[in-house]
Computed example of a mutant assay.
Amino acid sequence: MAKKFITIIVFLIGFLSIAQNDQLFEKANSFYNQEQYQEAIDAYTSILESGQESASLYYNLANANYKLSNIGPSIYYYEKALELAPNDEDIKNNLSFANNATIDAIDVIPEGVISRTIGNFTNMFSFDSWAWISVFCVIIFVILFLLYYAARISSKKRLFFLGSWISLLIGVFALIFAFKQYSFITNNQYAIIFAQESTIKSEPNLRSEEVFELHEGTKVKVTETVNDWKKIKLADGKIGWIPATDLKEL
């Protein structure tokens, strides 16, 4: 009885929290529409701090920061929104606008056609989406295979047999893409520069040689952490060390 009562209490608290965040989200949108962008940012951030996140929340927070010329935070939150909604064209377009406002011009090492095609296809869906597609296809495979054994008409048997194996094949490829997406996420930790200007060092200490400079909004790959320093790699292959306080990891 006590466990049931606790469960009900937890459910009610969760429900009230969601309702409260919905009201706060609408209030933040109202601030944004009235061009009170800092107030909107504060409201959106309060929702994030409560543990709730969504593509629309990150997107609106990015827009509000962009309106105040907070390039680093705007790019960061557009990237976070894109993680949850990788096919959203509005997010992609606004992220492109924000990237155009950055100072650093970094040449990207070109990928091969095959590698780029596979990467683009893999990024069509998130890891969770690919996993669910795989599960759904396996279920369809089982159903069609059972129908194949139950069917008495040869044309239907051929149809069910073909459909079942096509479903299984799609499921296997979806599973491969899911693991590829998961591997990409776990092995590629990216971050956005938040400092207006940051000096990149050759080693993780202030006495080491300065190798280059980066500015707010630039996206970097984090490859190593030593104390309060992050080793980063740029899209053009340059590497160096940056104070951890100068960036924010995605």
Rank of each mutant, 00 (worst) to 15 (best):
I193C: 03
D228N: 14
I200A: 07
A195R: 04
L146M: 13
F161K: 11
Q23Y: 11
N188M: 06
L84C: 04
N33G: 14
P73D: 09
L162W: 06
V10I: 10
A235F: 01
T245M: 10
W165I: 05
S54C: 12
F31C: 08
L206W: 11
V222G: 03
T102F: 01
I133V: 13
N205F: 10
F15P: 03
A2R: 09
Y78C: 04
S30T: 12
S167E: 05
A101F: 05
I139N: 01
I166G: 05
L61G: 07
I139S: 06
N94A: 05
E26P: 06
I242C: 04
T7Q: 12
D88E: 10
Y190S: 09
Q20P: 00
N87A: 11
K219V: 07
D236N: 13
D107M: 08
Y37R: 08
S202E: 14
Y77Q: 04
S74H: 04
A244N: 14
L48N: 06
E111M: 10
I153V: 14
S96A: 11
L234C: 01
Q189N: 10
L68H: 06
F212H: 04
E209G: 07
K3Q: 09
K156G: 04
D236W: 00
Y32P: 04
F136V: 10
L84I: 02
L146A: 14
P86Y: 02
I9T: 10
F179D: 07
M1D: 09
F194E: 11
A150M: 13
Y148K: 13
L162F: 13
L162M: 09
V10Q: 09
Y44T: 04
I114Q: 07
L24E: 14
A105S: 12
K221Q: 11
I18L: 15
S46L: 10
I176T: 13
L214W: 00
Y149F: 15
N187C: 03
N227C: 00
R158N: 15
